[in-house]
Computed example of a mutant assay.
Amino acid sequence: MKNRILGKTGQSVSEIGFGAWAIGGTWGEVSMEDAKGALNAALDAGMTFIDTADVYGDGRSEKITADVLQERGGEQPFVATKLGRRLSPHVAAGYTEKNLNEYVDRSRDNLQMDTLDLVQLHCPPTEIYYTPEVFAVMDDMIKNGKIRSYGVSVEKVEEGLKALEFPNVSSIQLIYNIFRQRPAELLLREAKRRDVGIIARVPLASGLLTGKMTADTTFSADDHRAFNRNGEQFDKGETFAGVPFDVALDAVEDIRRLLPGDMTMAKFALRWILMNENVSVIIPGSKNKAQSETNAQASDITALSDETMSALKNIYQSKIAPWVHQRW
């Protein structure tokens, strides 16, 4: 497993990390045994970065993370969590000093950590990026020893660019994959220039880029891929990267023809992201041991050819960009 530096945190982390959303909830049922097996397998494979959030299973993901790390002992991975989405309604007015501190304290308890490695504002309303008082609260948390660093998880490129104006923002998390290529045009370069780490989420477009889905694929009622396709519960772009299911399936078939040898599409899609040196870490999710092991293997894959990269860009521009490019 190769490592990269996570921006101004100065932390060296595995270039493929563990996305802990799936072991928390809204991805269908995941047993405790499978959840812990997935995380243990990721750590055994050399992953040293875990991304979770206080709302993933109402704290389940954070607590599972804490349990596994306590059981394993030894050198601890870098753990990033998020705050803000517990607000109901989720509005900018709720991002008060009191609420933010209460959420951080809850995550500290869940994760059994006195000082959190990284806390990210969890896709806050756009207005927050124009509210310096919120970032001042996060600065105070560093001074008070509750957190070591903070970042933002954004929905839109514009929000990421605005976040870069705050000097203590250490990382930006955003959707970046073969179906969401716009961040590479400006944001990823600007983040690198300002020494801000990039955490790439939804790298497999909610499973579409595994190449295993068909028009007949169904999802359980508690899976966001069943209930959030049109943004019913949260931003539409979080589900299938915002691409209509039928449109994406058509593009997947074009991508399949580019796979070299017996490489799986999942590994291929992760390797595409790693081709961008401005990405610090990718956080694919997994629901079991086998998925974690497969994700980790993408770090060892040979670089994709220029011809392949060009072909993937053409597929994006012709079939996907009209649906997503200017929206996020």
Rank of each mutant, 00 (worst) to 15 (best):
V55W: 06
Y56P: 08
Y56Q: 07
G59F: 07
E62M: 11
K63A: 12
I64E: 11
T65M: 12
T65H: 11
T65W: 13
L69I: 13
G73Q: 08
Q76W: 06
P77M: 09
F78V: 12
F78E: 04
V79R: 01
V79N: 01
K82A: 06
K82M: 06
G84Q: 12
P89N: 07
V91I: 15
V91Y: 05
A92D: 13
G94R: 01
T96I: 12
K98I: 15
N101I: 11
N101G: 09
N101V: 13
N101S: 09
N101A: 10
Y103L: 07
Y103M: 14
V104N: 05
V104W: 02
V104D: 07
D105P: 01
D105H: 12
S107D: 08
S107Y: 02
R108K: 15
D109S: 15
D109L: 15
N110V: 08
L111P: 06
L111S: 08
Q112P: 09
M113I: 10
M113T: 09
D114H: 13
L116M: 07
D117S: 10
V119T: 04
V119P: 07
V119N: 02
H122L: 00
H122E: 02
C123L: 00
P124K: 02
P125T: 13
T126Y: 04
E127K: 14
I128Q: 05
Y130H: 14
T131S: 15
V134F: 11
V134P: 12
F135Y: 13
V137G: 00
D139P: 05
D139K: 04
D140W: 00
M141W: 03
M141S: 00
M141A: 02
I142Q: 11
K143Q: 11
N144L: 10
K146G: 06
I147E: 05
I147R: 06
S149Y: 13
S153V: 01
S153R: 00
K156L: 02
E158A: 11
E158Y: 04
G160V: 01
G160A: 01
L161A: 02
A163N: 10
A163V: 14
A163M: 10
A163S: 10
F166W: 07
P167N: 05
N168F: 07
S170F: 05
I172L: 01
Q173T: 00
Q173A: 03
Q173P: 06
Q173Y: 01
Q173I: 00
Y176C: 08
N177H: 04
I178H: 03
I178L: 15
I178P: 03
F179W: 08
F179S: 10
F179H: 12
R180Y: 02
Q181T: 04
Q181H: 05
Q181C: 04
R182F: 07
R182P: 05
P183K: 03
L187P: 10
R189S: 15
E190V: 11
K192C: 07
K192S: 14
K192F: 10
